[in-house]
Amino acid sequence: MTNTPDLTHAQWRKASLSETAQGCVEVAFIPGDLVAVRDSKDVSKPAHVYPVTDWTTFQDRLRGLVPAELSRIVVTIAKDSVLLSDSRGAVEPHVYTHREWLFFLDGVLNREPQLCAAV
């Protein structure tokens, strides 16, 4: 993960199914070919910031196009939550409900443009 850039003016986006949800996975594409990821339930927690290439690999992993070991971004599904973390352990994981995760996953699987990097 890179040093956290200034995210003051970041335009946060989420999957279309998450539009009315209280909490969700939010992403912002920022200068320097980076993507920031945060949990909308607790925006005081540091965002995870990755190079766009890592984000694209992660989405391809979720779509079943690349093996899990190629993705720097790790998903851990537990009984009552889903954790999104960096395999390099730079910041604490974000914790989502299963519903929040499924809404995000639906957006990824449907290639919603607000979640995809322009490559």
Results as ranks from 00 to 15, higher is better:
88 R>H: 09
39 D>Q: 08
4 T>S: 10
47 A>D: 05
84 L>M: 13
61 R>Y: 15
82 V>H: 09
38 R>N: 12
30 I>D: 01
43 V>K: 10
42 D>G: 04
80 D>K: 11
1 M>D: 08
108 V>T: 02
78 A>K: 13
38 R>C: 10
115 L>P: 00
71 S>T: 12
14 K>W: 07
51 P>Q: 14
80 D>G: 08
49 V>S: 00
6 D>F: 06
25 V>K: 00
70 L>K: 11
70 L>M: 14
57 T>V: 15
110 N>G: 04
57 T>K: 03
34 L>P: 01
90 A>P: 01
116 C>W: 06
27 V>K: 00
101 W>T: 06
31 P>D: 12
28 A>Q: 00
26 E>K: 03
65 L>I: 09
31 P>S: 07
40 S>T: 11
116 C>G: 05
29 F>P: 01
119 V>K: 07
103 F>W: 05
49 V>H: 04
105 L>T: 02
10 A>W: 00
92 E>R: 13
6 D>Q: 11
85 S>F: 07
95 V>H: 03
28 A>L: 02
58 F>W: 08
91 V>Q: 10
41 K>R: 15
73 I>G: 05
113 P>E: 11
65 L>H: 08
81 S>Q: 08
119 V>W: 09
8 T>Y: 04
119 V>Q: 08
47 A>P: 01
61 R>C: 13
6 D>P: 04
29 F>S: 01
24 C>Q: 03
21 A>H: 05
6 D>C: 08
6 D>Y: 08
42 D>K: 10
7 L>M: 05
67 P>L: 10
74 V>T: 13
37 V>K: 02
100 E>W: 03
112 E>F: 05
109 L>E: 02
82 V>N: 08
12 W>S: 01
31 P>G: 04
28 A>S: 07
3 N>A: 13
29 F>W: 06
50 Y>D: 00
18 S>F: 07
30 I>T: 02
43 V>N: 10
115 L>W: 00
32 G>V: 06
102 L>M: 11
83 L>N: 03
49 V>Y: 02
3 N>S: 11
71 S>R: 06
46 P>L: 12
50 Y>Q: 01
113 P>R: 12
113 P>V: 08
21 A>C: 03
8 T>V: 07
92 E>C: 07
85 S>Q: 03
83 L>Q: 14
53 T>D: 14
35 V>I: 07
85 S>G: 14
55 W>I: 06
23 G>F: 05
62 L>M: 15
55 W>M: 15
103 F>Y: 14
42 D>V: 11
116 C>L: 14
14 K>R: 15
52 V>A: 13
61 R>G: 07
70 L>G: 04
68 A>K: 14
91 V>K: 12
76 T>W: 02
44 S>W: 07
92 E>H: 10
116 C>M: 13
104 F>L: 09
45 K>W: 04
45 K>H: 11
82 V>Q: 09
35 V>T: 08
59 Q>L: 15
14 K>D: 06
85 S>V: 07
29 F>N: 00
38 R>D: 03
61 R>N: 15
79 K>A: 14
50 Y>S: 02
104 F>I: 01
41 K>D: 09
